[in-house]
């Protein structure tokens, strides 16, 4: 089973980020299915854990809901990460989540970055804001990201083609990567090795 997780930072259940995430999830799972893979797609809407994230930021306490969200990331063969653009960058909520996640969970995990914005003037947000974040987290970045401006949702074909191309590239990455799914926080290194270190 190949598990995809769509993480979206839209603040409305019908936000265009959620919509773009859904479309990318569907397109990728169809592309994977065409390669003979069994696929499941999970959705993690960050708005549903927003207060858990701020509480975690202030206290360091991860709520049960937050632990569950981290477990969803750990179980994912690929993460589709979608944020709206606020003031020229991903939203604070989007960053809060990846800050709370810590450095290890995205390491070696395929990620397809995507963003939504009012106009195409924000298209490069993925390249200048999201890509550095995921490089820092040592995620495996898919080579074809998707930006959708409001006008794209009414335009002919363009966005659909970009979603198809992104899904195809992401599928190749997901099939090759096999990220770790174990929980590194409770892994033991034998003490004789630690002493020797």
């Amino acid at each position: 089973m190949t598990e995809l997780l769509v993480v979206s930072a839209g603040t409305d259940p019908n936000s265009s980020s959620r919509l773009l995430g859904t479309r990318l999830g569907e397109a990728t799972s169809m592309a994977l299915a065409a390669e003979g893979e069994l696929v499941s797609v999970q959705h993690l809407e960050l708005r549903t854990i927003a207060s858990d994230l701020t509480n975690h930021l202030i206290t360091g306490v991860a709520s049960a809901k937050l632990d569950e969200a981290f477990a969803q990331v750990r179980a994912a063969d690929g993460v589709i990460a979608v944020s709206p653009v606020y003031n020229g960058s991903y939203t604070g909520l989007f960053k809060l989540f990846f800050d709370a996640l810590g450095r290890d969970l995205m390491r070696g995990r395929p990620v397809l970055p995507a963003a939504t914005g009012g106009t195409a003037r924000h298209s490069l947000v993925i390249e200048y804001a999201m890509v550095p974040l995921f490089y820092y987290l040592r995620a495996l970045l898919s080579s074809v990201p998707v930006f959708a401006a409001t006008a794209d949702w009414g335009a002919s074909a363009g966005l659909d083609d970009r979603i198809e191309q992104a899904a195809a590239a992401f599928t190749r990455l997901v099939r090759a990567a096999h990220p770790t799914k174990s929980d590194p926080s409770f892994e033991v290194t034998d003490f004789s090795q630690l002493l020797g270190g």
């Binding site: 207060s51 701020t54 509480n55 930021l57 202030i58 206290t59 306490v61 709520s63």
Partner: peptide
């Protein structure tokens, strides 16, 4: 509280 105030 300094440690967990202003949060949950």
């Amino acid at each position: 509280a300094p440690v967990y105030g202003h949060g949950p």
